[in-house]
Simulated scan of single mutants.
Amino acid sequence: MSGLLAYAVLASLFIFAIAMGLALIRVFRGPSAQDRVLALDYLYILGMLMMLVLGIRYASDTYFEGALLIALFGFVGSFALAKFLLRGEVIE
């Protein structure tokens, strides 16, 4: 890995970590349930992006598979939470 790519990976991981901290603040202090759900959605997206960057850094396919699983489960979880907030029940 070249020096520039190594610095870019470290910088992006640092920025993603800061964004995760800000999203956690929104999860705990969100004024409404919808804000909390959006913050959780943002957290899983940031987690997926961090896994992708780590996959680039370590040149491992395992990180990419983990990112795919995070994306799938995050989408299903967001859908279930949105449906619960809309109707008050997940399973009809």
Rank of each mutant, 00 (worst) to 15 (best):
48 M>T: 07
44 Y>I: 06
63 Y>V: 00
48 M>Q: 01
35 D>N: 04
90 V>P: 06
34 Q>M: 12
15 I>Y: 07
50 M>K: 01
73 F>Y: 12
4 L>I: 08
70 I>W: 09
53 V>H: 10
20 M>S: 05
83 K>N: 10
41 D>G: 04
68 L>Q: 15
56 I>L: 15
59 A>Q: 14
73 F>R: 05
15 I>K: 02
12 S>R: 05
12 S>D: 09
6 A>Y: 08
82 A>Y: 01
29 R>V: 07
13 L>A: 00
39 A>D: 08
11 A>H: 01
14 F>M: 11
47 G>M: 12
46 L>H: 02
7 Y>N: 06
73 F>V: 14
33 A>C: 03
18 I>P: 01
26 R>H: 02
79 F>Y: 13
42 Y>C: 10
85 L>A: 03
13 L>R: 00
61 D>C: 02
26 R>A: 04
11 A>L: 11
49 L>K: 08
46 L>E: 03
69 L>F: 14
88 G>H: 01
25 I>C: 06
43 L>H: 09
51 M>S: 14
66 G>N: 14
10 L>W: 08
54 L>H: 04
62 T>K: 10
58 Y>T: 14
9 V>P: 02
16 F>A: 04
36 R>V: 05
59 A>Y: 11
10 L>E: 11
71 A>F: 13
4 L>H: 03
50 M>E: 05
92 E>A: 15
35 D>E: 11
55 G>Q: 10
85 L>G: 05
81 L>I: 12
88 G>R: 02
12 S>I: 11
86 L>P: 00
23 A>V: 14
69 L>S: 12
62 T>H: 08
32 S>P: 00
47 G>K: 01
75 F>C: 13
68 L>S: 15
1 M>R: 12
80 A>H: 03
53 V>M: 14
59 A>H: 11
90 V>F: 14
84 F>C: 01
56 I>T: 07
82 A>G: 05
74 G>P: 08
70 I>D: 09
66 G>Q: 15
84 F>N: 00
81 L>A: 14
79 F>I: 14
7 Y>H: 05
50 M>R: 03
6 A>G: 06
14 F>D: 06
4 L>W: 02
68 L>H: 11
41 D>W: 00
82 A>L: 09
92 E>F: 10
40 L>P: 00
21 G>K: 03
49 L>D: 04
85 L>F: 10
8 A>Q: 06
43 L>S: 07
7 Y>S: 06
9 V>W: 03
71 A>V: 14
68 L>F: 15
47 G>Q: 10
9 V>H: 07
33 A>Y: 00
51 M>K: 06
57 R>I: 02
5 L>F: 10
15 I>A: 15
9 V>S: 10
34 Q>E: 13
